[in-house]
Design a binder for these strands. Structure first.
Lengths: 219, 219
DNA sequence: GTCTATAACCTGATAGAC
DNA sequence: GTCTATCAGGTTATAGAC
């Protein structure tokens, strides 16, 4: 834990989380064994239990490290957007605040890994992972839902929920499965270009959120 | 294999596939063991190997049984839509043809299971499952991509691919994770109502597909 | 076709030396 | 903090009786 000068902080705990993050993102949680993780990290198997208590503890730690900076950056951008627009940011600005941090988490070279891990966690069948996700994501979700409701004052609340549900799926897809777009477009689109993705995703979602809703659901 | 009159066909092979379908949908492939499946189906563990050769064989069989009727129904509806509209169906009609079969696969009581399994497979990390999915889904994808390109003649091909990518994510979300919408809306929305879902999903996607695209990408 | 029994292996977790 | 060794149990797959 105590680092000397020049120590890059790559102790076994961090090495473990790096390896686990990569493997979880690529293969999913259930299919990734602790043995594989420790081998990849070059540390001893028992270190997992020492540092994290259990596999679940490791999952939680990895996920928490991944999502925390994203959440605070999302909220910061939303605050900024609200400040700049006198408290009434456009749908596009709100969506941009939500989407940019995940897609442009380029401070670490593991940005793509983070992206995939985040998207994968989103659709994880494991109930424990879902619970972690909800706990970490709850506050952000509420803030953004409120902001969008404010930006779309005529849209009934239930219709907003339907659309958020779809929108979240589109974002999750963009994050979890960039490779699919490469295949689908035969290389014509580059999902690893964050700005290009944002420039397509935000208008797509905004148009969906703004479109007229079914007649029987109108107020 | 030979059934007497009155035999409902619930032999161990089918019992196995039913149980596997349910468990795969709920927990994912990697986290579902053959022991659990055979116990739930009330058949012997060795029956899996006898009927399907391996766990992978079972996964493939279950998935194939799930997706084949959906694919043919999708293509049938698209043919019908094209016939009714003189070969130029609207974006909405095309999307409806794509989305309706999955959401309304109500012929069997396991409609919800099929839906979840389909959505889950879509985002499965396992490369073997992905491969099955691509093989089964490839033809349908091509037909629908061509139909949408035809219905949106001014949209550059690359932009269409971006949007299809997002749209597929929204559809997958609607299928794989209905429970999330219940939680998100605090019970106000019912994602298990196929017609209600279609009535929201199709306009949402159509609006996204039709919206103007980024300037730098215009022809 | 269906069973039992078991092989061969992998899993997460832990005790205890250093 | 890090190691070895190992436990207890789960995993898929298969051989062979019926």
């Amino acid at each position: 834990m105590v680092h000397r000068a020049g120590d890059r902080g790559a102790d076994s705990k961090e090495l473990l989380m790096d390896a686990a993050e990569r493997l979880f993102a690529e293969r999913g949680f259930a299919a990734t064994s602790l043995r594989r993780i420790t081998a990849e990290a070059g540390v001893n198997l028992a270190a997992v239990n020492y540092h994290f208590g259990s596999k679940e503890g490791l999952i939680e730690a990895v996920f928490e490290r991944c999502i925390r900076p994203l959440s605070s950056e999302r909220l910061r951008l939303l605050d900024e957007a609200e400040a700049r627009s006198g408290g009434r940011p456009s749908v596009e600005l709100i969506l941009e605040s939500f989407v940019t941090p995940v897609l442009r988490a380029a401070s670490r070279p593991s940005a793509q890994i983070t992206m995939k891990l985040y998207g994968r966690t989103h659709s994880a069948p494991d109930s424990h992972v879902r619970e972690i996700f909800l706990r970490q994501f709850g506050g952000v979700r509420e803030r953004f839902t409120a902001a969008l409701a404010h930006a779309l004052p005529h849209l009934p609340r239930a219709e907003l929920y339907w659309r958020l549900h779809f929108a979240i799926g589109a974002v999750a897809q963009a994050m979890a499965d960039p490779e699919r777009l490469v295949v689908l477009s035969d290389g014509a689109c580059d999902p690893y270009d964050a700005d290009a993705t944002i420039a397509r995703l935000v208008p797509f979602l905004a148009a969906g959120l703004r479109t007229p809703w079914p007649v029987e659901a109108r107020e």
